[in-house]
Write a protein that binds this DNA or RNA. Structure first.
Length: 488
RNA sequence: CGGGGUAUAGCGUAGUCCGGUUAUCGCGCCUGCUUUGGGAGCAGGAGAUCGGGAGUUCGAAUCUCUCUACCCCGACCA
């Protein structure tokens, strides 16, 4: 195996795969498209998960769990929904295996199910089936439930974290008495997603509305956060749907109002997935591997001790003990690497794994009362007094967090171009980046641009201003200002 | 599901066209000694039914048939 990574500029895709493997984040499972999330990758996901879990609980949501298995008939109850998901469902048809002389083991034909069972691709249907039982009165509303779960979508083409046939996510499903309240919930969650992405993953995002053709199957409106990856392509990082009364109608969920009228319930659903881990890699990674934002990094400071013999080893160990202690007291996540690999090997390995700060301590430092502190984001190395370093580390971690965000933001801005002609759009898309321009609002234009350039409308950005703009494709007055880009 | 390709040790590979005796090399792994401030060195060692099955042949990683899996390009997608 070569020591360096594939070139990030010319071979971004191979670079990504190598980083995932060599940073020890994940591996391929035996069934096509499945992923084993390894401990280091899983800690990263857990940190994202815990962060968002706190955010939704602070806004009145509660967690619950719904079944993995859904009766096939449920999926058909909402016409758009079934159309969107029918082509990628894993279906359970039998319940038993049996021994067979010729083939070893076969599906027992006698165990065929009356009604096949779908492995959930998303849980709207089973949740709204239950909500019908739980909601009778305006007093039962709003219902603000979230679940952390796995879902299965039988995708044709898969990539670790970005698109796997099974993935982990959270899916929020809320029920409301009024349309206004559901719309507010949809946008409130969108704002939480923005905060999660920007304040914790250090990943700048555009918020906006999906077009009709890109919206969630079964939604009235889909809002999203879209981020620009290191190869200037777009990644949908989270979606928040206003489902209107579609699922209430499909599952006949009504409630009685204060003045004794019967009305259909209003709904939202929203989700972010393990794809966010992929987004972090694609946003911040560099030629040395991963660069993790300190707030979600499993390890914030890795300590590399250096010693020539046992005597020195003990010296370094004793020197480190109080230092580690005070860092831990300051709630810094510290890891000491005492494995018997060479220091150079460790430097490279922990850089690959994206640890924000590295602290080197050898006999020389012990003698001088110093440490060496190296930043993963900039590569800067400084020689500090031991106590000085301990005092600076929490601030430095914040500085790195902000630095990664600013760097990504600058990149996103530099590669977002406002254009007024189709030629300009084609040129920007070819070179890579986001295009901001007018759109006449028709499906035809959207489809044609996609066909001719492979770029899709990522969103109608929040705060758009179509006034005076024309559609770059048709030349008609623009109905919306939109963002076009090639997407993952 | 269309079009193209690949399958040899944990990973990456040579050998396949043109059949021939102990299947090549690198990384990784194990043991020992020397090492350790940017991917350490030396010595020794373990590890492969050459994707499965059938056939041709005195003899198959190599030729033929067949099955399977995976990869790349399209249509689908958090």
């Amino acid at each position: 195996m070569s020591k360096g990574l594939p070139n990030r500029d010319t071979d971004f895709s191979a670079w990504y795969n190598q980083v995932v493997k060599r940073a020890d984040l994940a591996d391929h499972g035996p069934v096509k498209g499945t992923m084993v999330i390894k401990p280091y990758g899983f800690q990263l996901w857990e940190n994202i998960k815990e962060t968002f879990d706190k955010m939704i609980k602070a806004t009145g949501h509660v967690n619950a769990y719904f079944p993995l298995f859904i009766p096939k008939s449920f999926l058909a109850k909402e016409a758009q929904h079934v159309e969107g998901f029918a082509k990628e469902c894993a279906v359970v048809t039998h319940t038993r295996l049996k021994a067979d002389d010729e083939h070893g083991i076969i599906v027992d034909p006698d165990s065929k199910l009356e009604e096949e069972i779908i492995v959930r691709p998303t849980s709207e249907t089973v949740i709204w089936f239950m909500y019908k039982k739980w909601i009778q009165s305006y007093r039962d509303l709003p219902l603000l439930i979230n679940q952390w779960a796995n879902v299965v979508r039988w995708e044709m083409r898969t990539r670790l974290f970005l698109r796997t046939s099974e993935f982990l996510w959270q899916e929020g499903h809320t029920a409301h008495a009024t349309e206004e309240e559901a719309q507010k919930e949809t946008l409130d969650i969108l704002e939480l997603y923005r905060q999660l992405a920007e304040d914790y993953l250090a990943m700048p995002v555009l918020t906006g509305l999906k077009t009709e053709s890109e919206k969630f199957a079964g939604a009235v409106k889909t809002y999203c956060i879209e981020a620009m990856m290191g190869d200037k392509r777009a990644l949908q990082a989270g979606t928040s749907h206003n489902l209107g009364q579609n699922f209430a109608k499909a599952f006949d969920v009504t409630f009685q109002t204060k003045d004794n009228k019967e009305e259909l319930v209003w709904a939202t659903s929203w989700g972010v997935s393990t794809r966010l881990v992929g987004a972090v890699i694609l946003t911040h990674g560099d030629e040395k591997g991963l660069r993790l934002p300190p707030k979600i990094a499993p390890i914030q400071v890795v300590i590399i001790p250096i010693s020539r013999n046992e005597e020195q080893e003990k010296l370094v160990k004793d020197y480190l003990a109080p230092l580690v202690d005070s860092l831990e007291k300051a709630h810094v996540r510290v890891h000491q690497d005492w494995t018997d690999r060479s220091p150079g090997f460790k430097f490279n390995e922990w850089e690959m794994k994206g640890v924000p700060l590295r602290l080197e301590v050898g006999p020389r430092d012990v003698e001088n009362g110093k440490v060496v502190l190296a930043r993963r984001d900039t590569g800067d190395k400084s020689f500090l007094l031991k106590d000085e370093a301990v005092a600076q580390i929490p601030d430095l971690l914040e500085e790195i967090q902000d630095g990664l965000f600013q760097q990504a933001l600058k990149f996103q801005k530099e590669n977002t171009h406002t254009v007024s002609s189709y030629d300009e759009l084609k040129r920007v898309i070819k070179e890579g980046g986001f295009v901001r321009c007018g759109w006449d609002g028709t499906d035809e234009t959207e489809a044609k641009v996609k066909e001719e350039t492979k770029a899709t409308i990522r969103c109608i950005p929040t705060g758009e201003n179509p006034e005076g703009l024309t559609c770059v494709y048709s030349g008609k007055p623009a109905k919306h200002e939109v963002i076009y880009a090639k997407a993952y």
